[in-house]
Design a protein around this nucleic acid. Structure first.
Lengths: 211, 211
DNA sequence: GAGATTTATGTGGTCAGACCAATTGTTAAA
DNA sequence: TTTAACAATTGGTCTGACCACATAAATCTC
C-alpha cells in the first residue's frame, strides 16, 4: 500500500555483507594465510549484526575452504589455493546418474594433459620430481600406483586440474581397490616415458591400473 | 519420521553433516533445478538439529549458488550453471595470475579432447551435426563463435565435459566480449578440419577467439 | 455469485541469550 | 620451579522470539 522507505540495500542479506566486509578487511589489513580473524562475538559487535549472521558468513567461507576455525582458538585465514570450490561443485554436478564413462574419459583427459604438461616442463623438473617420489616410495609413503599418479598430476603444475582430477577419481573409484602394485621398476619406466615423451606407454599403464 | 541418529564422527560439525545429507536427499529424490527443498524448520525437525545449523548449511550452499532462497517461499535447487564460482574466485582467490592460467589451460584441454572425440565419432555424425548447426546459423540461433563452439563440445558426447566446460568458460570470459564473428565460411572450415582431423587448425581458431 | 479484501499460515531473515566444549593464560599450591 | 586448579576467551549448538514476505483460505462487498 503505502510505499515505505527503502533501505540502503533491501535485497542484501546480512551474512552476505559480512562476507564482503571480511574480504575488505582481509585486503585492507593485508591478511595472509595463517592470520587470525576477529572472533565471532567481536565481529558481531563491531559490525553491529547478530552473531548468527557472522557465523553464517564464517560457515560459508569455511565450507569453501577459505578460512579455518579451531574450537577454542579462533578463526584463521587459509591459503586460498586450498579452496574447495571444485569439490563442492563436483558434489552437486557429479550426482544424478552421471554416466560413468564420462567420468572415466574426462579423468583420462586430465591425466593425459597433465602428463604432457610434465613432459613439456623439461628434464630437470622431471628429474627433481622423481627424486622426491623415489624418496617417498622408499619410505613407504607412496605405496600405490594411484598415489604415484596423483603425485605426478599434482606436480604437473595446474592446481585446478589436480583438484578436478581428485574429485573425478573419488567419484570413479567408489568401492574399487588398487590392483596394480607399485614397484621401483614401474616408477623408473614411467620416468623414462616422461623424459622421452612416450605418452602411449603411460596411457597404457594407467588404463591397466584403472579397472 | 525417523529421527536422525547422531553421527559417529564427533568432530564433524553439524552444518557439514547437513550439507552431506542434503546432497544425499537431492540424489535420492532425483531433485533437479527448480525443485523445492524442505523448509528450514522442517529440515531442522527431520534431521534433529537446530535451525541455525540448517541455516549455516543453506547459507554456504547459497553463497556457492547451488541453492536459491526466496523470502516467504522456500529454498530451491538451482541449475549448476548458476554457480558463483566466478565471483568467489574473483573475490578471494584471484590474487596471483596462476589461478586464471589454470582455468584457461584446463578449458583448452577440454576443448581439444572434445574436438578429438568428435573427430573419432566419424564422418556421418559430423555431417549430421553440421546440418543442424547450419540450420541454427541461418535462423540466427547460433550467432557467435562461442555458441558455435559450445554446440560442438556438447555434441561431442561427454556430458560431464560439457558441464565442466561451461563452468570454465564462465570464468574465463568474465568481462570479455566476443570478437570473432561467426561466418558460414568459418563453420565450413571447422567442419572440414574435423572431418580430416586437422586439430591444429581448430586450436588455432579457438586460440584466436579466446582473448 | 464474482471480485476484492482481510486473515491465517507458512517461510525465510535476523537477533538475543543460553549452555556446552575446547583452548589458553593466569593464579595458587606443592 | 614445577604443577595443578581456575578463569577467561572462543567456537559449537540449540531455542525462542520477532519481523518481512508470500500465498492460500476465509470473509466481506457489490
Amino acid at each position: 500500500m503505502t510505499p515505505y522507505v527503502e533501505q540502503s540495500n533491501p535485497q542484501l542479506k546480512v551474512y552476505i555483507s559480512v562476507v564482503h566486509q571480511l574480504k575488505d578487511m582481509i585486503q585492507r589489513d593485508r591478511l595472509t594465510s595463517g592470520d587470525r580473524l576477529p572472533s565471532e562475538r567481536e565481529l558481531s559487535d563491531r559490525l553491529g549484526v547478530g552473531r548468527s549472521s557472522v557465523r553464517e558468513a564464517f560457515r560459508a567461507l569455511e565450507l569453501l575452504g577459505l578460512i579455518e576455525t579451531r574450537h577454542g582458538e579462533g578463526t584463521f585465514l587459509r591459503d586460498f589455493r586450498d579452496h574447495r570450490l571444485v569439490e563442492l561443485l563436483g558434489m552437486f554436478i557429479l550426482q544424478n546418474g552421471q554416466a560413468e564413462n564420462d567420468v572415466v574419459e574426462m579423468k583420462d583427459w586430465v591425466e593425459s594433459a597433465s602428463f604432457n604438461r610434465l613432459f613439456l616442463s623439461g628434464k630437470d623438473g622431471i628429474e627433481h620430481l622423481f627424486d622426491t617420489i623415489h624418496a617417498g616410495f622408499n619410505k613407504g609413503e607412496i605405496s600405490t600406483f594411484t598415489h604415484f599418479k596423483s603425485k605426478l598430476i599434482k606436480a604437473s603444475g595446474n592446481r585446478l586440474a589436480y583438484k578436478v582430477w581428485l574429485v573425478l577419481h573419488d567419484f570413479d573409484t567408489e568401492g574399487k581397490k588398487e590392483i596394480l602394485p607399485l614397484s621401483e621398476e614401474l616408477i623408473y619406466d614411467v620416468k623414462n616415458a616422461l623424459l622421452t615423451g612416450n605418452m602411449e606407454f603411460i596411457r597404457a599403464i594407467c588404463t591397466a591400473s584403472d579397472q
